[in-house]
Design a protein around this nucleic acid. Structure first.
Ligand code: FES
Ligand code: FES
Lengths: 147, 147
DNA sequence: AATCATGTAACTAGTGATGTTACATGAAGG
DNA sequence: CCTTCATGTAACATCACTAGTTACATGATT
């Protein structure tokens, strides 16, 4: 089980919703993601708290996007999910008194900080609209091959 | 205990060993790392399998470095540890049939691959000797401040 | 009123490093 | 020889975290 696939999940869900008319229920999204509806609510609830989606109960209820696809970047979604840890590696002690460990943490920490900065920068430069366009391109390719 | 701190641990241990005459026991290293001696053996055993350190039993036994500090990079240590996953994030499905998920995985995967490549590159450019020199510099700084 | 769908709490499952106990194996010293 | 020391390794517990599941309350629509 990979550690955290929520960013991947919400992206899949959001693009689905973008291509879909009207709200989508947690159960429908759960079927698409092969995930449990309660987990969908749990995760989408974080996006709702961030003002990116809205939820409604009752008949014809479900989830819908309330943000502009052009302005929502992967980084904003990452933040909406609570900025979970990106790296699986870490230090043993954060603020060691030992000089050796300080040297080790400095070297490791700098490399990891650079990698994290790069990743967040890439995340900031990709929007939901970009992904929707990429999907449309892939879709057209497949149709062209079949036809 | 939140994440994988083995690379940090072995770096700390190796630099300790580098500054120390004769082999160091797992118990002594465990005291320095605030770790269990069995865990030390477990982790150092991977470095031994990679030919970076040697272990001996009995009186005056313990661990010692058998590689050149100048040639052992953080990346080589990372490999010796079995190249554990660097990212805490991941995809839900690796090879999805759904085009939406393919687009999502492509975008996420590229960003993560770039970040991982950068991190491994930084790891490749730092050797144990570099860290030892950094430690010596910090040590001199502290002595200068005290004196 | 019945139905649908979210909101949320509470619990379980699975994963992987780390902690711990226990015992076998081999090397040095007496 | 035999005691001591230290590694080698198995087996199991612990911890943190996401994901899965069950159960029930709440609110909106019909
Ligand atoms: S399963 Fe619905 S588009 Fe991915
Ligand atoms: S505790 Fe020994 S140098 Fe870090």
């Amino acid at each position: 089980m990979i550690r955290d696939s929520r960013l991947s999940s919400v992206l899949h869900a959001l693009l689905h919703m973008a291509e879909h008319d009207g709200p989508m229920t947690s159960e429908a999204l759960g079927r698409c993601l092969a995930a449990n509806p309660v987990v969908v609510r749990r995760t989408m609830g974080l996006l709702r708290d961030a003002g990116l989606v809205a939820s409604e109960r009752g008949h014809a209820g479900g989830w819908r996007i309330v943000a502009d696809l052009e302005t929502v970047s992967l980084r904003r979604l990452h933040e909406a999910l609570g900025e979970p840890a990106i790296h699986a590696l870490g230090h043993r002690h954060e603020t060691p008194s030992c000089l050796v460990e300080q040297a080790v943490n400095a070297a490791l920490g700098q490399a990891m900080a650079e990698a994290e900065a790069l990743l967040l920068d890439r995340f900031a430069q990709v929007t939901l609209a970009d992904l929707a366009r990429d999907f449309a391109r892939r879709h057209a390719e497949v149709r062209a091959q079949k036809g």
